[in-house]
């Protein structure tokens, strides 16, 4: 093995260094928009665990992020000092829930799976609306509590949350990368490419896919928790199907299974789109054209035969181009 970091590792490091520079020098009110994009980027990465690794399309990312947000806010309302317990327990619960629902859904074909996960998102929204005394219904609820870390104290401020979002994204990238290059990761990729062949080779498909689905759920939930305590106000609209669809859109633009490109797509395209206010009524058209161009560029890139040709030696070693 070479001691030199791979090209992908260098690219990821460059991406995070560039973001760090942005976080250090932007004024506070401009960081708000970066943090909102980072929240979406974490959800794209979470979906990448499901779709990019496990090959399972999911429209539940919004619901899972909302679950994390509401669970954390409600738990903090009763135990305001217990962030160190609430955050990991909520993330674990989201992991467990996503993994549990993934098992029966694993048998569903792509279209049916998308519908089932869409159902999960709608169930979440309806639960929030129905449990109005607890959740505030569709009006939402103010978040008066803060995340409190032991020895550090309450977390507040744009820059603090910028680095929290960035840290969570970096953790997700590291786990994604490590998982992808591990034995279960390769088994997941095998399930994605040919589920039947993978099963016939003795791979426990439901168990593996529940792992990737669970990880995706946990990351979405953690992003939701940060988003809730950062913004100070939550309502079901913030975690609606639109969030899931946006995550899917940027993952498709960047290419499922690729670590960096979907995240770059989120940060660059969302920044461009949020800077188009000066176009006035023409903005919607410009957004549409930009996203269409990005999708076409993504399609042309994946359709290029040269990029998809895997050297025989590489396949033999279990590597795939990033």
């Amino acid at each position: 093995m070479s001691a030199r970091p791979s090209r992908q590792a260098r690219n990821v490091a460059g991406f995070f260094l560039a973001l760090c520079a942005v976080g250090l020098f932007l004024p506070n009110y401009r960081l708000l928009v970066v943090n909102q994009h980072l929240f979406l980027a974490i959800n794209v990465l979470a979906l990448n665990f499901c779709l990019g690794l496990g090959g399972q399309i999911s429209l539940a990312q919004g619901g899972l992020a909302g679950l994390g947000a509401y669970a954390s806010v409600l738990a903090h309302a009763h135990f305001p000092q217990a962030s160190a317990i609430i955050v990991p327990v909520t993330a674990l619960a989201a992991f467990g829930l996503a993994a549990a629902v993934s098992r029966p859904m694993e048998r569903l074909g792509e279209g049916f799976l998308a519908m089932a996960t869409l159902g999960l998102s709608l169930i979440f929204t309806n639960l929030v609306l129905t449990m109005e005394p607890l959740t505030g219904g569709s009006a939402g609820m103010m978040v008066e509590t803060r995340l409190i870390l032991p020895w550090i104290g309450p977390l507040s401020g744009d820059r603090t949350f910028f680095f929290l979002f960035l840290g969570l994204l970096a953790l997700g990238c590291w786990i994604f990368s490590a998982l992808k290059n591990s034995r279960p990761g390769r088994a997941l990729l095998a399930c994605k490419d040919d589920p039947l062949a993978a099963s016939s080779c003795g791979i426990d498909r439901p168990a593996l896919r529940s792992l990737s689905f669970g990880l995706g759920g946990a990351f979405s939930a953690m992003a939701g928790m940060l988003h809730a305590h950062y913004g100070g106000f939550i309502n079901p609209e913030q975690f609606s199907l639109e969030l899931s669809l946006k995550a899917l859109l940027f993952l498709v633009i960047g290419g499922p299974g690729n670590l960096l490109r979907p995240l770059l797509a989120v940060m660059v395209l969302e920044t461009l789109m949020s800077g188009m206010q000066f176009l006035g009524e023409g903005r919607t058209l410009a957004h549409g054209l930009l996203l269409t161009a990005a999708l076409l560029a993504g399609y042309r890139r994946t359709a290029r035969p040269a990029r998809n040709t895997v050297p025989a030696s590489s396949v033999a070693e279990g590597h795939k181009p990033m």
């Binding site: 009110y29 909102q36 009006a139 913004g231 106000f233 913030q238 949020s274």
Partner: peptide, 27 residues
């Protein structure tokens, strides 16, 4: 709501407005 908060912050922190009129929807 996310854009509304972003714009409110820009009004207060960059444009130093005295007061704000709006926004439009309850969310």
């Amino acid at each position: 709501p996310d854009v509304a908060l972003r714009m409110a912050r820009q009004l207060v922190e960059a444009e130093n407005v005295l007061a704000i009129i709006g926004p439009t929807s309850t969310g």
